[in-house]
Computed example of a mutant assay.
Amino acid sequence: MVPTIVFVTGNANKLKEVKMLLAPQAGKEPTFELTNTDIDLDELQNSSLEEIARHKVSQAQSVLPKGTAVFVEDTALCFDAFNGLPGAYVKWFLKSVGPEGLVRMLEGFETKKAEAVTTVAFADFEGQVHIFQGKTRGKIVQPRGSRDFGWDCIFEPEEGAGKTYAEMEKVDKNQISQRSRAFALLSKCLNDA
């Protein structure tokens, strides 16, 4: 029987995407089973993405049975014009002003460049915490494509052939996204263990 690893999320879209990213390569047996739990974790007010993720996984460890392998994921959108803001606060900005409001924030600024960053904090079966981070450069554009997944409709990655994340097929997005890069590092850790 393969061990179970818990992903702390209540977001069905995020869970589906992460299951795709951590799926074993064709012809290989899974080395773990991925489940999820929806734990309400505090949002640490900090500009360090690593510290925010570390705090969240520590909280999850304190709630789950001892010895449970668990990971959390936190994604930020960092505008060059704002020296990295809204960063980890993008979820709250998006909730308050929507995608159009995020775009309007950059009116008057010459650069629309941005960086999408995903930080994964994984606590292994012994409780040791590992941090993995993936980054994708791009720019902020007027909303295009589906609005089902946060700010995907306004982020056009440099490697995206002129499409926003929301306009891309999942398989294409998963080849270049910051989330796929962070989870590739987690996958390597899980499979090398």
Score class of each variant (00 low, 15 high):
92 W>I: 03
121 A>N: 09
133 Q>V: 11
60 A>C: 03
73 E>L: 06
107 E>D: 14
156 E>M: 13
179 R>C: 06
123 A>C: 03
106 L>K: 13
153 C>Q: 15
138 G>D: 05
151 W>K: 03
90 V>S: 02
129 V>N: 08
150 G>P: 02
94 L>E: 08
84 G>E: 00
67 G>D: 05
59 Q>S: 03
91 K>Q: 07
153 C>P: 11
67 G>R: 07
182 A>R: 07
86 P>M: 08
184 A>S: 12
136 T>N: 14
140 I>C: 09
63 V>Q: 12
82 F>E: 03
112 K>Q: 10
149 F>P: 06
59 Q>G: 02
148 D>K: 12
184 A>V: 02
60 A>E: 02
62 S>R: 13
126 E>P: 05
127 G>T: 01
128 Q>S: 12
149 F>C: 06
86 P>F: 04
181 R>N: 11
86 P>E: 08
67 G>H: 07
103 V>S: 08
113 K>D: 15
136 T>D: 13
177 S>V: 00
109 F>H: 11
62 S>P: 07
91 K>E: 06
83 N>H: 13
164 T>I: 04
123 A>V: 02
173 K>D: 11
132 F>N: 11
130 H>K: 15
95 K>V: 02
84 G>F: 00
119 T>M: 15
125 F>T: 13
64 L>V: 00
74 D>C: 01
82 F>Y: 12
177 S>N: 01
149 F>N: 10
181 R>W: 09
75 T>A: 10
77 L>F: 12
183 F>N: 05
119 T>W: 11
182 A>S: 13
159 E>D: 12
126 E>A: 15
106 L>A: 10
